[in-house]
Amino acid sequence: MSLADDIGPDGGGDDLVAAEYVLGVLPSDERRQAALRIDAEQAFARLVDRWEVYFAPLGLGYADVEAPAGVKAAIDRRLFSGAAPGQAAPSAPSLLSSLAFWRTLAVVALAALALYIALPFFGPPAETPRERLVASLAADGSDVRYLAVYDGRTDDIGLSHVSGAAPQGSDFELWVIEGQQPPVSLGVIPQGASVRMPVTEVLRAKIASGAVFAISVEPAGGSTTGAPTGPVVAAGDLKAI
């Protein structure tokens, strides 16, 4: 039975399949097809993610049940004990191939991410390695996500825009917060998928001492008070990499 039999050509197509996938009702073969499409088609993956977001509050109703002892050790054996013979022996062959698939994909994605982060920083070789810090900026209930990379060698911050847009007539402003100190502005974040923001001497010390980055929504051009005036839509602390 196809969608067209039921609902007609305008009935939702891919979006309904995405909804059925998230709900979990699809028969095994259709579910597998949908899973392959999530990996291969970004547009379809976004439809699925949107339905996951819609339904996610229902998922908070699952009760916690303590996991049996020994599960973590079994996971660690599978992931970290190298290629010891007989270790990876899940029963179904389809599972094996899918695991191999995930691993390959993850390695490729991670390599791509690492390259993405590192590429802008491959300047002339430095004599001593300088500190490099990364922060994933996000917040619950907000779709704004940035990946921030600070490189002690270039003294600027690279910002990769992952998702979320500032409302019409407003800008995102980047703040650095050190402990209980008031936030200090790093300026309005320029538009673009990948942007750089300069860092002054004073802020460099704050960043190096383990500060937190936060992004707030401000009137176009940035806060006029010197402090955040709008909601904080993403935040995260810096980790050395």
Binding site: V53, A56, I75, L79, L99, W102, A109, R145, L147
Partner: peptide, 17 residues
Amino acid sequence: YVKIWTKADRFAVSDLS
């Protein structure tokens, strides 16, 4: 958890909490 270990990078492109 094996999946979480291998595909944690995908969290960055999801809008989910």
